[in-house]
Amino acid sequence: MSYLLKRIAFYVFTAWAAVTINFLIPRAIPGDPVQALITRSRGQMTSEAVQSLYVLFGLDKDASLVEQYFTYLGQLLRGDLGLSFTYFPSPVSQVIGDGLPWTLGLVGITTVLGFLIGTALGTGIGWRRGSWADALIPVTTFVSSIPYFWLGLIAIALLTGPDSFFPASGAYDGGLVPNPDPQFIGSVLRHGILPAFTILISSMAGWILSMRNMMVTVSSEDYVTVAHAKGLSDRRVMVGYAARNALLPNVSGFALSLGFIVGGTLLVEIVFSYPGLGLQLFQAVGAKDYPLMQGVFLIITLSVLLANFLADVAYLALDPRTRREG
């Protein structure tokens, strides 16, 4: 238990460090975001408006850095990440709130599915080593070596077009209003299929390979032979003795991949113009939208930390040897 507490303390500290760096970096960058906004509005702003912008962005020169820091922390606790330039005057938290569900829905579900299906297939292939199933190995190796955005580009080139069932971009038909009716949901699913399969196939292939290799390694462990010698059913040995242990190294890998849901599939979202966090980050970079960038980076950092923590907890739960008891 004290081990877990130590880990939690570590993560809290890391999160604090990330937040602080997030505060310092934009202030260390030369240039003035308000100036950039003024330039963009092509002089159609009164000086009062400019002044209120400085106040809004928290860049009014009167406050000291320390004061600004505490204001920033206070705002952060309230979920206030400032205002976005590109979507001005929407707050960053709202912009992120719009993008996050799409990313979580698309990438989150496919990441989890990819892990589950890949692990199950890898278990079966590894267990029946030497059978026809081994023929799948070169295929999966090949697939797992293709970058997923490239797979996405190929899918768009081959499967989309003016009269194709699959739309090439977006998350739903432009004419629809997001609400839970069948037409909207159907549109979301139709738009999601291609990007989902792109991610699913390439992530699954990796899990198949690593699980298969671990199964082969674990199958020759003494305790698996003992399980056979005990006359347990083949299924019981495969699941309870081989797969259970082969899973361990993959669990932390999986937890880490959860952390990259938010930031890791940027390219798929760009390729499919999918309105998730990745696309927003891409646009924010292009528009020099510092508050939005900061907000997205913060979310990415925190989700990676959370995933690491989950990995620790999962390992603790699954491998008794990591528990320091008594």
């Binding site: 003494d222 305790y223 259970r244 242990n245 361990l248 008794p320």
Partner: peptide
């Protein structure tokens, strides 16, 4: 088995 050390599954 020989080397019964590893005959027990470490996770059960």
């Amino acid at each position: 088995f020989q080397g019964a050390m590893n005959s027990l599954n470490p996770v059960h």
